[in-house]
């Protein structure tokens, strides 16, 4: 796969895996309204995944579409960040994951909406509006849980502690990123970090939460080195396509 296709693939994989995770909440959320909110976010992510994976397939030019990429690759070929594949845990852990990721996605897509490559810019412009809402919703929940009861605070602290080590990977740059920027499709993610830090810190302060202790970055997702969780997620997600090769649905 060429680097631009890889770039689209990473964006698609991020959205796909997070959408898959969030959809696990459907029917099981703490309140009916919250169930609807989480499903809306999941639907946005699945929609983004569809756009980016179809684009990746098109750029690759080997006849693979979004479905082929989503349902017929193994762990080592998945390029999502480690954050999105983390298990839902309790509601606080889900919110912590969403909070870190949505603020990253919001900054990313704001910038990407203005890139030269209109294919990336168009998807990003639409997604930017979606993820801006996700970031607000997740932030509001961080504040409620952080500044709620003793129990909710403890859970929010634990949730953030779980996901914090995966934050650095969001902003890490490599050759594919550089090539994507060069080609007018990509965004300098390392330059987003400052704004992300200040947005995240502002919410944490309002939530009366301390920023989690620094942790050595856990990375590898972009080059297919994942956590153990992803294989299980894929074995479930890909079951039908694996069990009935060649069938259409």
């Amino acid at each position: 796969m060429d680097v631009i296709a890889t770039y689209a693939l990473r964006l698609g994989d991020d959205s796909l895996i997070l959408g898959q995770r969030l959809s696990e909440w459907c029917g099981h959320a703490p309140a009916l309204e919250v169930d609807l909110s989480l499903a809306n976010i999941a639907l946005d992510q699945v929609g983004q995944a569809t756009h980016f994976l179809n684009l990746a397939g098109e750029l690759e030019g080997k006849g693979r579409d979004g479905d082929a990429l989503a349902f017929r690759r193994d762990v080592m070929d998945f390029t999502n960040c480690l954050l999105v594949e983390q298990p839902n845990g309790d509601f606080a852990q889900t919110i912590a994951r969403q909070f870190l990721f949505s603020h990253y996605q919001a900054l990313l897509f704001e910038q990407m909406a203005a890139v030269k490559d209109t294919r990336f810019a168009a998807i990003a412009a639409k997604a930017a509006k979606e993820v801006a809402y996700h970031a607000t919703l997740a932030s509001d929940w961080v504040i409620r849980l952080g500044d709620g009861t003793d129990e909710s605070k403890a859970r929010m602290v634990a949730g953030l502690a779980w996901v914090w080590r995966f934050a650095d990977e969001l902003f890490a740059m490599d050759a594919a990123d550089a090539a994507a920027i060069e080609a007018g499709a990509g965004v300098d993610k390392s330059a987003l970090r400052g704004a992300w830090d200040s947005r995240v810190d502002a919410v944490l302060a309002e939530a009366t939460l301390a920023r989690p202790a620094p942790h050595r970055a856990t990375t590898g997702g972009r080059i297919g080195r994942h956590s153990e969780h992803l294989g299980h997620l894929l074995s479930e997600m890909q079951f039908l396509q694996r069990a009935y090769p060649g069938a259409t649905w």
């Binding site: 959320a29 703490p30 309140a31 504040i143 849980l145 709620g148």
Partner: peptide, 15 residues
């Protein structure tokens, strides 16, 4: 779902 969500509903209310 009801039991696991109790602390969330309570936290939001207290907040």
């Amino acid at each position: 779902a009801w039991d696991d969500g109790a602390w969330v509903r309570e936290a939001a209310r207290v907040h």
